[in-house]
């Protein structure tokens, strides 16, 4: 098949080596390696809660791995000085699931924000740049709206315009298709694809929307329980013999991934072993309400 997951590739813009990361007891990533090739759209797929957002935050340097390293454009993200990290981040766009627009300013100012913060361009130049970016996402006419007046799809497109304002080398999309109606979904799919080709970006898409992602991705990793369970081109993924990948791609309720979240006790035992405190005097006669921990 392919060996990109194991050997660092000359063409990779982002490479993740032997990454391990935990939240409390739970291992979110267990020694995984991923490669993201320059100029390509690479998708990370997996069910909710597998740690897709966490992976993007690790790549952006907002979280620290327990083990392993992440190289972006030849630099180890987690061993950079603060200002070096900030310099690198100027070239990494990220599209948050919620859009994360600044609610205190209108669409125009939101897109202008990174330009005003990072450049000393005159306002006339900023205006041209902002209008160009807004035109690219089809929202030049919405420049005076406030974020709360935008639909979810529009907010995401504004956030996209903001993410490309500084002409980054890559963009990370966090679930760009989730919660979109079919029309704005289609618009976003086209937009991501066309930005990738016209601006020569490297795109990382994190998603669980199988069809939309498979339609534009050049390469797909499928994650589950901290491991890569499948990888390849969309075609290879579709034809994969892995039961797990098949379950995910076809959306079967049960399979290697169970419908039930693991429980300690058996269902019957759980039902029979009732909580005695439910029937205590306190509960039944409401003698004293449970004490709140603190009032403030």
């Amino acid at each position: 098949m392919d060996n990109r997951g194991h050997h660092p590739n000359q063409n990779s813009l982002v490479s993740v080596h032997n990454l391990t990361f935990s939240r409390g007891e739970k291992k979110i990533f267990d020694n995984i390696s991923l490669e993201f090739e320059r100029g390509k759209i690479t998708a990370i797929m997996g069910p909710s809660g597998t740690g897709k957002t966490t992976l993007l935050k690790l790549i952006g340097g907002q979280l620290f791995p327990e083990n392993g390293n992440i190289m972006v454009n030849g630099r180890d993200v987690h061993h950079l000085k603060r200002d070096e990290l900030y310099t690198l981040r100027k070239r990494m766009g990220m599209l948050f699931q919620s859009g994360a627009l600044l609610t205190g300013m209108n669409v125009y100012d939101n897109v202008a924000f990174p330009l005003r913060e990072h450049t000393h361009l005159p306002e006339s130049m900023i205006r041209s740049l902002v209008l160009m970016k807004l035109e690219a996402v089809g929202l030049r006419g919405a420049r005076d709206l406030m974020p709360n007046e935008l639909s979810g799809g529009m907010a995401r497109r504004v956030a996209l315009a903001r993410a490309i304002a500084l002409d980054p080398m890559m963009i990370m999309y966090d679930e760009p298709f989730t919660g979109q109606d079919p029309i704005s979904m289609g618009a976003l799919v086209l937009l991501i694809k066309s930005l990738n080709t016209t601006l020569g970006l490297t795109s990382i898409i994190v998603s669980h929307d199988v069809y939309e992602t498979a339609a534009i991705a050049d390469y797909i990793y499928v994650l589950s329980e901290g491991k890569v369970v499948g990888q390849g081109t969309p075609q290879e993924i579709k034809e994969s013999s892995s039961e797990w990948v098949q379950q995910f791609m076809n959306g079967a309720a049960d399979g290697p991934v169970h419908f039930h979240y693991p429980a300690k006790e058996k269902y019957m035992d759980d039902l029979l072993h009732c909580d005695k405190s439910l029937f205590s005097r306190k509960r039944l006669f409401g003698e004293k309400p449970a004490k709140r921990r603190r009032y403030s």
Binding site: G60, Q62, R89, K90, P114, E117, R162
Partner: peptide
């Protein structure tokens, strides 16, 4: 996530 978003914009 506005604060987080700002951090990602350096």
């Amino acid at each position: 996530e506005q604060l987080s978003g700002m951090e990602m914009m350096a």
